[in-house]
């Protein structure tokens, strides 16, 4: 059905409702309101159509060279690049060039350095601003260090859970022994 035909049908329906209400009372006013809303939508769509745009696709990626691929891999593997920082705009801005090659950005700077030197990486912020993940960093190798603690509580929790489960089932299934009533003889 064309827009004009549908529009005329809506208008005719509104006219019928206005001239001869079959059900006097609130129901008519509701239908009038619905017809008016439908009319507004029908007319408005044609005007609003110009404002509705299609999905804008992402910008095309620059063709990656071999060096870029290697560099992206390096950055992806670099734990420093994955640290979550808060309120460190200055540090982030200064490190933007080094981080621009992250694979998820999909962008490559025009003059990407082949290697990142220590001078290009600004000093890392105080420990208070780094993520909690860094605060619980695993032990690192040092001369005379201890062997890491590799014990987990998982087996203990598993056994404890099984024991509690069995006890719970046994307690729940135990039937009450009927107390023999004393017979008066």
């Amino acid at each position: 059905m064309a827009d004009s035909e549908w529009l005329m049908a809506v208008v005719n329906q509104a006219r019928v409702l206005r001239e001869g209400p079959a059900f006097p009372g609130g129901l008519v006013s509701i239908r009038r309101f619905s017809a008016a809303a439908a009319l507004l939508v029908a007319v408005g769509v044609t005007e609003a159509r110009a404002q509705i745009t299609t999905v804008i696709g992402p910008a095309k990626r620059a063709p990656a060279t071999g060096a870029d691929s290697v560099r992206r891999e390096q950055v992806a593997q670099d734990s420093i690049a994955r640290v979550t920082l808060t309120d460190m705009k200055q540090w982030v801005d200064s490190a933007a060039q080094a981080l621009a090659l992250r694979p998820d950005t999909g962008t490559a700077p025009a003059e990407a350095p082949s290697t990142v030197t220590a001078a290009q990486i600004p000093p890392r912020p105080d420990s208070a601003t780094v993520s909690r993940r860094m605060a619980v960093a695993p032990p690192e190798f040092r001369e005379g260090g201890r062997a890491p603690n590799t014990a987990t509580v998982i087996p203990t929790l598993g056994v404890l859970g099984a024991v509690l489960l069995v006890i719970g089932v046994v307690v729940g299934r135990r039937r009450r022994v009927p107390v023999p009533s004393k017979s008066r003889s």
Partner: peptide, 10 residues
Amino acid sequence: VLVGVGSCLL
């Protein structure tokens, strides 16, 4: 309670 806690741990 025992069954619930045990199930959670498991």
